[in-house]
Design a protein around this nucleic acid. Structure first.
Lengths: 220, 220
DNA sequence: ACTTATTTTTAGACTACTCTAAACTTTTTC
DNA sequence: GAAAAAGTTTAGAGTAGTCTAAAAATAAGT
């Protein structure tokens, strides 16, 4: 009855694609997310449905059952705690930790996760600003907006990112944008929606919509 | 050309069974070590030989090639570093860490291992007294004797254990025996080779040969 | 040395996960 | 509201690792 590495990955990806409202996830979206073919996804969905971890009706997409959701949150908790460990304790850059955490998240011991969380001081957010569920699966809430939705003149603080890939994060590093930095939106270009912003009151730069869509911010 | 979890396990176990002199390891010994059947071992040996990680001739047992040895030492390094982390950083007991480290040792990133080693202060020995190879594969030397080979009247220090299983380590815990404690051999029973010992000058107890064969000690 | 016992290897099969190609649903478009 | 397009599932097959049963090779006993 144990769950394989692969099964855990499916649950995690279904959770992530399903969003906060828990909408149905399509086979193709999962194929994309798992880097496999739709046919392989269908096979796995049957298996997960058999185990009652997902609600699956042919051609209708899937959602997580309560059990599936709990399991997914466990994996996500582990992933994010390991990311904190890699950055805070071992000194990795936030652009380097995703792939390693992707492996570490499947290490099974509950005692390990709990002790890791305690050692790290039970962090609420990971190095990319993503909330870390507690041992019972409760997510710290945080309603962030995308920078792309901020209007001219507003002052906000960077709280997280939506793209976790290395190239995006390195781009932010090179631009001097990191978690916690203040952003004042000076001007938004009508044509391409790029924004002229002031970072921490000192540095002025252009941010493309591509980028601002992937930056999560909070008023202040 | 990457190496699977399973392949890595075989290399590690071949190394361990092969001993310091690198003697041939038999198919049956590997079947025992990997908890599989001899037939499965043979299949895997063909695969590892194909990759030139082991020297394999039918019916003759196997040894590691230079490449195989390097890989085995990498896994062992990872395993032992993670054990140090679990005990020193997360506060696990030395009897709890073997199985978790067995999983962690297969996390691939070299950068992770190096940073972990640095964080831990480049330890030379793990919580069971086993030497930790450095990044180049050099083992710290340490010629320990078994407690069972110590003669009456000698005073020694416990430096390691040969059995890493939980029950044995818990038995030591209950007896108050741990790494670094002094042992004076008062008397050896002719009949069953059990020993009457004095621990840290304060506690007297009997140690069966079963146990003393699995305790590594050093003169002092 | 020759027979027996033990060890190891081969042969064929099974599970988990993956694939391609073809068939089948659902959605979109005109 | 039929025809085309897009999305999904079935069918059949492949790889990695495992198994049992049987054959082959080595080691042991007298």
């Amino acid at each position: 009855m144990a769950n394989s590495f692969t099964e855990e990955n499916y649950l995690k990806i279904i959770h992530n694609l399903s969003g906060p409202e828990g909408v149905e996830v399509s086979t193709n979206a999962l194929a994309e997310g798992t880097s496999t073919r739709a046919a392989s996804v269908t096979d796995m969905l049957k298996k997960l449905a058999e185990k009652e971890l997902i609600n699956y009706k042919k051609y209708q997409g899937v959602t997580l059952t309560e059990t599936g959701e709990k399991l997914a949150l466990k994996i996500i908790r582990k992933h994010r705690l390991w990311e904190v460990f890699l950055v805070e304790t071992l000194g990795f850059g936030w652009d380097e930790v995703h792939d390693i955490a992707e492996e570490l998240e499947h290490i099974p011991s509950d005692r390990l996760v709990d002790r890791l969380a305690t050692f790290l001081g039970n962090p609420q957010f990971d190095p990319h600003g993503d909330p870390i569920p507690d041992a019972k699966g409760n997510m710290p809430t945080a309603d962030y907006r995308k920078l792309s939705e901020v209007t001219e003149g507003e002052k906000v603080v960077v709280m997280g990112v939506l793209d976790h890939e290395t190239p995006f994060l390195q781009h932010l590093d090179r631009s001097g944008v990191m978690l916690g930095c203040r952003v004042e939106v000076k001007e938004i270009n009508d044509y391409d929606k790029s924004a002229l912003v002031l970072i921490d009151d000192v540095k002025t730069l252009f941010i493309s919509q591509e980028v601002s869509k992937n930056l999560l911010v909070q008023r202040l």
